[in-house]
């Protein structure tokens, strides 16, 4: 990285892009899936050949040449048949996986992440930042072989006990997965800051309303006190007058 030329303007913070960012899985993700499929097929075919060879040697040698010939024929037939079957499955899988990967889209918005995927059942999942608990990245041995990785987004609603399957959404097959993870984290933090600010201002306005309500109540109470004290004053005056009048009458 030290040999890279300096990007003009990179030391100045840019204004955040207003458009959502569309992220698609790399072609290497497709190659990885093909590789895994072929590996599984190869392991299965080799295991089958070894098993048939073992049966041929063990049973065929003790049952005479006719049985051995029949077993040999069956052995060849089964090997060729299974290889052709795997080839047919691979062609179907290959086409299906190609369409699946081509249609896979991850969209990072300012407030949520949208994941569109599916071959037969097209699903569109919205993961709001509000529910995200943590974000992690994963690159298994086969991922590293194909230079790709997965960004996992985990939410508070995860029901499974296994950490791996708890991920609400996975952004798979990304070459620059570290940068994507950092980008999502930045977006998530700026969303949280924005929300905190909004919540703070809402609380401020609520407390302002409460304070003004208290003021009104106090004023009303003070008014009541004034009125009552005036009334009491009047009553006291009247009582004093009456008592004076009574005293005068007694004297006479």
């Amino acid at each position: 990285m030290s040999d890279l030329p300096h990007i003009v303007g990179s030391d100045i913070p840019p204004s955040p892009p207003d458009k959502p960012r569309i992220i698609r899985p790399s072609r290497n993700f497709l190659y990885k899936n093909y590789f895994l499929f072929l590996l599984t097929a190869a392991v299965f075919i080799i295991a089958m050949i070894i098993f048939l060879l073992f049966v041929n040697i063990l049973i065929g040698s003790s049952r005479g040449p006719t049985v051995q010939q029949q077993l040999n024929d069956m052995y060849i037939l089964m090997s060729v048949g299974f290889s052709v079957l795997w080839l047919v499955i691979f062609v179907i899988y290959g086409i299906g996986m190609y369409i699946y990967v081509k249609q896979m889209v991850f969209i990072v918005h300012g407030s949520e992440i949208v994941v569109k995927k599916g071959l037969i059942n097209r699903t569109e999942k919205h993961v709001p930042y509000r529910t995200v608990t943590h974000i992690s990245m994963r690159a298994g041995p086969f991922d590293r072989l194909f230079n790709i990785g997965t960004v996992e987004i985990q939410t508070a609603g995860g029901s499974s006990s296994s950490l791996e399957s708890m991920a609400e959404e996975k952004l798979e097959g990304i070459i620059i997965y570290r940068e994507v993870r950092d980008y999502i984290l930045t977006q998530l933090r700026s969303f949280q800051r924005k929300e905190l600010k909004e919540t703070g201002s809402e609380l401020d306005s609520q407390s302002f309303i409460t304070v003004s309500k208290d003021d009104d109540l106090l004023k009303a109470l003070q008014d009541i006190k004034t009125i009552l004290s005036q009334r009491f004053q009047n009553l006291e005056d009247k009582l004093t007058t009456i008592s004076n009048e009574l005293k005068n009458q007694r004297k006479f």
């Binding site: 030329p5 300096h6 990007i7 003009v8 303007g9 990179s10 100045i12 913070p13 840019p14 204004s15």
Partner: peptide, 15 residues
């Protein structure tokens, strides 16, 4: 005969 990288940003007097 070289590549010049430039980042989209609002320029300041120094850049």
């Amino acid at each position: 005969q070289s590549i010049l990288p430039w980042q989209a940003h609002k320029c300041r007097p120094q850049c």
